[in-house]
Nucleic acid binder design. Structure first.
Lengths: 211, 211
DNA sequence: TTAATTAAATGACCAATGGTCACTTATTGC
DNA sequence: GCAATAAGTGACCATTGGTCATTTAATTAA
C-alpha cells in the first residue's frame, strides 16, 4: 500500500523522494490534461491530495518544478533521438516524432527561457543550465561520431537544429477555445503553420546546408 | 500644449487616438526599461499619468496591447529587411541587425504564441494572426522577386528563416540579476548561446541548403 | 450666465494565484 | 504512556489583471 493511498506522513528519505516523485507525476498529468497555463499550485496540491503548504515542502517554486520536468523530458528526448543521427530523413523524422511522443517536451521547451528560466532561483538556474547544456553536448558528441564530422561542425549542426526545434515549439500551443468560430482564413493559418511542418521544412534546409 | 501636459479630458476622436498612442509609447518605453515582465498595468497607468480605469478605456487587455505593439514592430522589421533579400550574407546580417534595432521586436516575438496570443480575445487574435500572416506573405513575395525563385520555394525559405528567428528570439532574454555570481561555466553558456550566434549559424545553414 | 446633460476619469474593489508560517498532529523513541 | 520531533495544514499575505459605481470636466440648452 502506497504512501498516497494511506495518506501517511513521509518520514524516511525514501518516502520523501517517493512523495516528491508522486507530485511530479501528478504535475505531468495536469499539464497534459489542462495545458501549461492550466496548472496552478492550489490545483496541483488538491490533485495530489495534499495541502498547499505540504506541496511547498517538496517543491521550491512552480518554475523549479517545471524546470525539473523539462530536464527529465529533454534527457529522454535526446536518448530517443540518438539512434537516428546518421540519415537526414531519419533524423528529421525522429526529432519531430520524439518531440511529440515525449510527454510535455514541446510545451515546456516553448516556455523554457521566457517563463521557466526567467523565474528560477540562482541554484535552480545553475542546475538547469548545466543539465540542458550537458544534453546538448551529448547530442553533439554522438552526432560527430554518427556522421564522422568534426566536433565543431557537429556542434554547429546540433545548435541549428535545436534553434529550429525551439522555434517550431512555439507553434505547439493549444488552440483557442473558440477555434471553430474563427474565420476560415485564420483557421487556415493554424493548419498551415504547425510545429511539425515548421520543424520539418526548417530542418531539411539545415541538413542540406550542412552537407 | 499636449493633452498629457494639461491633463485634459479626451473628447474628440483625435484626442482619443492621441491618448491611446501616448499609452502605447509609454508601454514601449516601459518594456525597454523594465523588460516584458516588468510591465504592470498599474505601473503603466501611473507612468502615463492616468488612473487604471482610464487606461482600460483605451486598451482592452494587457495582451491586446502587446499584440498591437508586436504587429507594429513586425511591420517595421519586415520593411527594414526587404532591401537586403538578394545576397545571403547581407540577408543574415540585416535580419539580425534589424531584429535588434527595432525596439521590442525580439522580446515580443519570443513571447508571441505562448503568452501574448494565448490570452487574446477572439477579435484581437483574428486581427493579430492576419497581420502577422500578412507580413509573412509580404516578405515571401518580395523574396521570390529578389531571388527570382518560385513562390513555393520563397515561402518555404521565409518560413524556415522565421522559425530560426523565433527560436533565436528565445535567447534574447534579460540576464538574471545575479548573473555575475553565476559559476564560470554557466556564464559561459550565456555567452555562447545568444540570439545573434544562434540565428546567424542557423540562417547560414538554411540559406546554404536553399541554394 | 446658469442649469442640465454627456461621457471621460477615477480608484476602491474583486478574483485569481504564488507563496508563507504559526499552529496542529502523526509518528517515533524512551 | 509520555515527550520530542518534524510532517502536514490552511488561513493569510502580496501582487496583479480587470471592473464598475461614482465623480466631475466639458459641452449644450435655456
Amino acid at each position: 500500500m502506497s504512501l498516497v493511498e494511506k495518506k501517511k506522513r513521509a518520514r524516511t528519505k525514501v518516502e520523501k523522494t517517493d512523495r516528491r516523485s508522486f507530485i511530479l507525476s501528478e504535475a505531468r498529468e495536469m499539464i497534459d490534461e489542462s495545458g501549461f497555463d492550466g496548472v496552478t499550485m492550489a490545483g496541483l496540491a488538491k490533485r495530489a491530495g495534499l495541502a498547499k503548504g505540504t506541496l511547498y515542502l517538496y517543491v521550491k517554486t512552480k518554475e523549479e518544478l517545471f524546470a525539473q520536468l523539462f530536464v527529465e523530458a529533454l534527457t529522454e528526448y535526446v536518448s530517443a533521438v540518438i539512434p537516428y543521427l546518421e540519415d537526414d530523413a531519419a533524423l528529421i523524422d525522429a526529432m519531430m516524432r520524439e518531440a511529440q511522443a515525449v510527454p510535455l517536451f514541446l510545451p515546456l521547451m516553448a516556455r523554457l527561457t521566457t517563463i521557466i528560466e526567467a523565474n528560477l532561483s540562482e541554484e535552480a538556474l545553475i542546475a538547469t543550465k548545466r543539465a540542458v547544456g550537458g544534453e546538448g553536448m551529448r547530442l553533439a558528441t554522438e552526432m560527430a561520431v554518427a556522421r564522422a564530422m568534426g566536433s565543431t561542425e557537429a556542434f554547429e549542426l546540433v545548435h541549428a537544429l535545436v534553434v529550429a526545434l525551439q522555434g517550431a515549439a512555439q507553434l505547439a500551443v493549444p488552440r483557442p477555445a473558440f477555434f471553430d468560430d474563427l474565420p476560415e482564413d485564420v483557421r487556415g493559418i493554424y493548419e498551415q503553420s504547425n510545429a511539425e511542418v515548421a520543424f520539418t521544412t526548417t530542418a531539411r534546409l539545415i541538413l542540406k546546408g550542412a552537407q
